[in-house]
């Protein structure tokens, strides 16, 4: 037997070991699949769920993420009404 034949035969045996049994796989998947845990809908999805009065990183004096620099005017051409 040539080396190429040996290699091909070995690859067949490997593919047989790697390939799961299709039916068993499907049953196992169906049985072991956890029930989907859906998050309960928020009563007010637009509201940010933080405790009132709690300082965010943006408002905290000492927060590293505090926004200090001025935001650039993104629409300099816009004329703002008086």
């Amino acid at each position: 037997m040539t080396k190429l034949e040996d290699k091909l035969i070995a690859s067949v045996k490997k593919s047989e070991q790697d390939t799961p049994d299709t039916n068993a796989g499907q049953e196992k998947t169906a049985a072991s699949k956890p029930a989907s845990k859906k998050k309960p809908a928020s009563p007010n999805p637009k509201r940010v769920s933080k405790k009132p009065g709690r300082k965010t990183r943006a408002t905290s004096k000492h927060g590293r993420a505090a926004v200090k620099k001025e935001q650039p005017d993104l629409h300099p051409e816009r004329v703002w009404p008086d």
Partner: peptide
Amino acid sequence: SALSQAMRQALRSC
């Protein structure tokens, strides 16, 4: 092709 020839033996193992 060596691969064509080798397939003969390899298929026997199937």
